[in-house]
Amino acid sequence: MKHLHALGLGAVTALGMTALSMLPAAAAWEPTKPVEFIVPAGTGGGADQMARTLQGIIAKHDLMSTQLVVINKSGGAGGEGFLDVKSNKGNPHKIVISLSNLFTTPLATGIPFNWKDLTPVAMLALDEFVLWVNAEAPYKTAKEYEDAIKAAPDNTFKMGGTGSKQEDQIITVAIQKALGKKLTYIPYKGGGEVAVQLVGGHINSSVNNPIEAVSQWRGDKVRPLCVFDSKTLPYTDKIQGDLSWSSVPTCKSEGLDVEYLMLRGVFMPPGVTDEQVAYFVDLFKRVRETPEWKQLMKDGAFNQTFMAGDEFKAWLDQAETTHKGLMQEAGFIAGN
């Protein structure tokens, strides 16, 4: 039934697919059985949502001859999922989506793996981080909030975030360093929970991803102060009143020199052939052309950088160094 649908819809969207004709040679290898898509995080989180959206898009547009099967392996801050992929040497029917825990988990827990143990396929997008406060809080700009933090004693302000020694806490530590004041960091299980704790007034601020807090913003329950990126977001659709993502200033322009973006990328087990990697690079290029993917990017205000090959590897190398530095400074490395 699903395939019948996919045929009709696929024909319509194929019109927009110029990318399709670009890489005819890459179709030399094709999967011969269902491909396992490992999510190193729990069901319902950001990575899981993206993986399941990919699964849905690929099925709907019939982009792959076999099925894509999403499997969650969230144990040990995702370490379980990465180890599983690492140990499946040469298996081309397994891919894994990654988030920042690709770097943070081995550093924080000592679980033995490194991104170099996997075969990088492509960066799908980068996830933004935004500084949020409760809409009833008196701080209209990031400057006002920073001044309030600076004026108060250490640990007066509570910052909520997802998990411990992961991206949210890394940003928090960077903010502390920039402001010279300590914040109380409270870890929660998921981003949605953090946003609601902020609405309920149990924490003062959060660094939620846009997609995690956008609905609360629409309801005028929370206020975005600044985005941790080098330039403002390009999305101009109105979200709350006259405000859009593009009206949120960068944190740097507000006197808070912190930048952080989170990887949403895909990896394969070690020892797969270049042809097999090329197949998936091509697959994700085609996914990017679909309207559903574009909608997801817009809803979540993602940074739509796409990378593959050596460019991606160079980026990963750079990001690993950055994370190591940040984690070391914060004292998050296991065994210290």
């Binding site: 729990g42 069901t43 319902g44 899981d48 949502q49 399941r52 959206t53 849905g56 998921g190 949605g192 929970e193 946003a195 609601v196 609405v199 997609i211 956008v214 609905s215 609360q216 629409r218 309801g219 005028d220 329950k221 559903e292 909608q295 997801l296 809803d299």
Partner: peptide, 25 residues
């Protein structure tokens, strides 16, 4: 609120987002 009361609700929440609906107030 957009906060799931159960693991199943968490998955449904993801579904809402994919269908272009934003749960919340």
């Amino acid at each position: 609120l957009g906060v799931p009361g159960s693991p199943t609700a968490a998955v449904l929440l993801g579904g809402l987002l994919i269908w272009g609906l934003q749960p919340g107030p």
